[in-house]
Simulated scan of single mutants.
Amino acid sequence: MSDPVAANADLLKTWVSPAALASIAKWYAKAGEVATAEMVSIDSKNMTLNCRFVGISHKTVVVAFKPRLASYEDAQDRLLEMKAISQEGLGKTKPPKISSFRLQSTGIPDGIFIFTLFPYLMFSPPHGGSRFFHPAQLVQSRVDGKYIGMAFAAGVGWHALNTLYTWTLCWKHSIPFGATVAYTGMTMFTGFHTWVDLRKRIREARIDAARKSA
């Protein structure tokens, strides 16, 4: 079975400029002071660059793809993303700015589960009351309350760690205060689902910016 990326290597060799390839070699392969670079070959696992250094010396540099490229289209986007990330890391460009909040609804059931079910189990009276409390009382009779509390604390703690990571993304990408509050608050409720979508938006912004730049 042929490699889907290698089959389109000739097209990909001109997808990013020699200057961008030089940045990729510097950032991802730690190749040093690369002046310019030319793509010699590419497949789903890695690409080989012929790098010219300051002083006219040449060296072959291999840059691995992690994870592996899945297709020709994936290779196009990944090369543009690598171009953007390497230029950000080298101080040539700034990280993309995200100016608004986007709701990611897939994590809402997780939030409802943690912040509704656990308090219901923990704070329902152990005896008597309305029928509404009977399911909680059944669980309380079979599970020690401290384990329910520990599970709730673990869930909240995990969401808090995810919220901290979301805040770092918002800070790095200059997200306005209102949108930052929305992103961090929603992460506290839904967990990782929110920052996964935010990272997707950041990736899309990077690729779009890299596509428009020289």
Rank of each mutant, 00 (worst) to 15 (best):
A20D: 05
G55Y: 01
L11D: 07
V40L: 03
K92W: 15
P135T: 02
S124R: 02
D3R: 05
L90S: 11
I114A: 05
T14D: 05
L138K: 02
R102L: 13
A160V: 00
T106N: 15
G129P: 08
W27Y: 14
A19Y: 02
M39R: 05
A214M: 00
Y120N: 08
T116Q: 08
D110T: 09
Y120M: 09
P4D: 05
T166K: 11
N46F: 13
C51I: 05
T163K: 01
R201W: 09
I85M: 03
P96D: 07
L103K: 00
A153E: 13
A9G: 02
A210W: 00
F113C: 09
Y28R: 03
P109T: 15
P67K: 01
Y183F: 01
G157P: 09
F113D: 02
N46A: 11
F133Q: 00
D77Q: 01
P96R: 15
K94D: 10
W195E: 06
T168R: 03
Y28W: 14
V181C: 13
T187L: 04
S86R: 12
A84M: 12
G111P: 03
T48G: 01
Q104N: 04
T60G: 02
D77T: 00
V143C: 05
S41N: 08
T194R: 08
T93V: 00
M47H: 12
A160N: 09
A37M: 09
A210S: 14
F118I: 10
G89N: 11
G149F: 10
F53P: 01
R78A: 02
L103D: 10
I175C: 07
P67F: 07
D43K: 10
P18M: 03
M1D: 11
A210K: 07
A6T: 09
G32E: 14
T116W: 03
L138H: 03
R102Q: 07
K172F: 06
S124I: 04
K66Q: 00
R203S: 07
W171Q: 04
A37P: 04
L103A: 10
D197K: 03
P95A: 04
A7H: 10
S86W: 04
R211M: 02
R68M: 13
F113P: 11
N46V: 03
P95D: 06
W171S: 12
V139G: 02
M150H: 00
F132D: 06
K200Q: 06
W27E: 01
R203E: 05
S17V: 12
P67A: 03
S23H: 15
P126E: 01
H193N: 09
A136C: 09
R68K: 12
K30W: 12
E33N: 11
R78N: 13
K200W: 06
K30S: 07
S57H: 10
R203C: 09
K212P: 15
V143H: 04
W27R: 13
S130T: 15
L117S: 12
R52Y: 15
T168G: 13
T194G: 04
L117T: 12
Y120W: 09
A29Y: 01
Q140S: 15
S2A: 15
T14K: 13
I56H: 04
A35F: 06
Y28E: 09
R199E: 15
F133S: 00
A6H: 11
D43Y: 14
